[in-house]
Simulated scan of single mutants.
Amino acid sequence: METDRTSSLYFSLSAVLMVFVLMCSGVASADQLMSLSRYELGSGDKIGISVFGEEDMEKELILTDAGTVSYPFLGEFRVRGMTVGQLQKYITDKLKDGYFVDPRVSVSIKEYRKFFVSGEVKSPGGFSFEPGLTLEKAVALAGGFTQRASKKGIMVTREERGRAVERELTLNGSVLPGDIITVKESFF
């Protein structure tokens, strides 16, 4: 029981320290950090999993199209929709169940899944996500607006609770991994 509290406290302190460092360095806004702390893993995300003191248990894995990963002792299991904290707890609980006495599991996101920009940009396509990404920066990665682009009414399609939701986004709005940004043509 005490080790569960210690593990939980360790994870909480690590998360708080990471948020503090990212905010102080200007890498990510408070709103985006809140979104990323609730960030649900999805197909294409690359994660790192390790167990303290167990080198053979250190793995970097990419979620399959089905949202699964395969990990020693546990086999293949579904990860899509879990947060990093939920996945860490899941693996810890499963490894405690007959494999390790007190596993110290660490899970991190090594690389987020891509976001996509289409429509009236010079170089549409998929791009690597980094915390702190705004719509304006995403459009810049796509080569900027074309002459016909509408800078208002830019739409983003984002998966929320398993459903694709479309909404309008301003240039300083936050972009998340997996977003599909559509820049429409201006009529004037």
Rank of each mutant, 00 (worst) to 15 (best):
V117I: 04
S128H: 10
G126K: 11
E120R: 09
E120N: 01
V121H: 00
L74M: 01
V105T: 14
T83H: 10
G119W: 03
G126Y: 03
E111F: 09
M82K: 12
S128N: 07
F73I: 02
F129D: 08
Q86P: 04
S118K: 04
T68A: 07
F77I: 00
K110D: 13
Q86N: 04
G81E: 04
Q88M: 13
S108N: 15
G67I: 02
K110F: 14
Q86E: 13
V69R: 12
I109Q: 14
E120F: 06
F129V: 06
D102L: 15
S118N: 11
R80D: 11
F116R: 06
L87I: 07
K122N: 00
T92P: 04
E76D: 10
V121N: 04
G98D: 13
K89I: 05
G67N: 01
R80V: 06
T68V: 06
V107C: 10
I109F: 13
K96P: 10
Y90L: 02
V84I: 15
R80S: 11
R104V: 12
K94L: 02
I91Y: 07
G81A: 09
I91C: 07
R80G: 02
P72A: 07
Q88H: 09
T83D: 00
L87G: 08
F100S: 13
G75Y: 09
E111A: 13
V121F: 04
S70R: 13
Y112I: 10
S128W: 02
G81R: 04
